[in-house]
């Protein structure tokens, strides 16, 4: 295992986040369609996650419901617009808005993506890829340092779903992420669907990706898992081209990959992401149950640890 020089920044007490982290349970992405049902039925669920940018509004129902739900549940704030992989400087106004949200809701976790979404004053509203090389590494690490300093908390970085590769890449994705984590002290949000999608789209073995990840990244740095559904498309030669659509149930292959990941990490906060074709809340709860079943049935080591504690 790699030795890590950098300590975890802003450990509990010095951090703007609510101490203790997310619980080792299943959670779902909070959707306005489900606000009332959650308030009324108080489902037994580990945590909720919101996209930060949706709550960068002054007032109204979004803040009303998030405030009520936060009173009852742990919360993860997940940014999609910071553009950490961007060549442009980070938007300080956006960092201020993130800091205000974190101060208001005291989430247990803040995460962002290894991707970019802004260039100049344009916002592209998608998570765009960057080559894995020394130049991008410096850029990303500088932006993560700045973000963690500004927000005064440790952030988690999510591995991306990608559709293309760059001739200019010189590092494997897992090596790149391991180095970012080592330099900045940030944690990993392991998106298992993204692992699957990106590996299929790059003609690689998702299991090998996981093995490489666990070989280079300490388990203690992995703080959350994402699960989602993808859409099936095809490239110009008829090969699979998977789209990270968040619009369908989690695929069987992704559940299998999750089982493998959780077997290594032990029970870990696991989010079911669904952003399109939003089903009834009960359908999401069924997937949450599935995740919890896997994390507690397949992780005897961590379970026994809990019993002994």
């Amino acid at each position: 295992m790699t030795l890590h020089a950098t300590a975890v920044p802003f450990k509990d007490g010095a951090s703007t986040l609510f101490p203790g982290g997310l619980p080792a349970r299943g959670g779902v992405g909070l959707k306005p369609e489900h606000f009332r049902e959650i308030i009324e039925s108080k489902p037994d669920i580990g945590f909720f996650e919101v996209h930060a940018e949706n709550y960068m509004v002054d007032g109204g129902p979004f803040h009303h419901y998030l405030g009520r739900i936060r009173a009852d549940y742990p919360l993860s704030i997940h940014g999609v617009g910071l553009s950490i992989g961007g060549e442009s400087a980070l938007d300080r106004q956006h960092l201020d808005r993130l800091a205000a949200l974190i101060a208001r809701y005291r989430p247990q976790s803040f995460s962002e993506h290894l991707a970019w979404s802004s260039h100049g004053d344009l916002f592209l509203n998608d998570l765009l890829p960057a080559p894995y090389n020394a130049r991008t590494l410096d850029l990303v690490c500088g932006h993560i340092d700045q973000t963690q300093e500004h927000l005064r908390c440790r952030m988690l970085l999510e591995n991306p779903a990608t559709y293309v590769e760059f001739a200019a890449s010189t590092m494997a994705e897992t090596d790149f992420m391991a180095e970012v984590l080592r330099r900045t002290g940030c944690g990993l949000l392991l998106d298992v669907n993204n692992v699957y999608v990106s590996c299929i789209n790059r003609g690689r073995d998702p299991n090998a990706w996981l093995d490489a990840c666990f070989a280079s990244i300490p388990l203690s740095s992995i703080a959350e898992i994402h699960l989602a559904g993808f859409a099936q498309d095809y490239d110009s030669s008829g090969a699979s081209l998977l789209i990270d659509s968040h619009g369908s149930p989690v695929a069987r292959a992704v559940w299998e990959l999750y089982r493998r990941a959780i077997g290594r990490t032990g029970p870990l906060a696991t989010l079911l992401e669904r952003d399109n074709d939003i089903p009834p809340f009960q359908a999401l709860l069924a997937e949450v149950s599935m995740a919890e079943k896997i994390m507690y049935a397949d992780a005897p080591r961590a379970l026994s640890g809990e019993v002994c504690a």
Binding site: Y163, V164, G203, D235
Partner: peptide, 22 residues
């Protein structure tokens, strides 16, 4: 320029996923 695909398929087809997403 500078995009690659593992199976030498047309990178424009894969790149179009981003354009479509946006």
């Amino acid at each position: 320029s500078g995009l690659a695909t593992w199976n030498h398929s047309d990178p424009a087809r894969r790149f179009a996923v981003y354009r479509n997403n946006v």
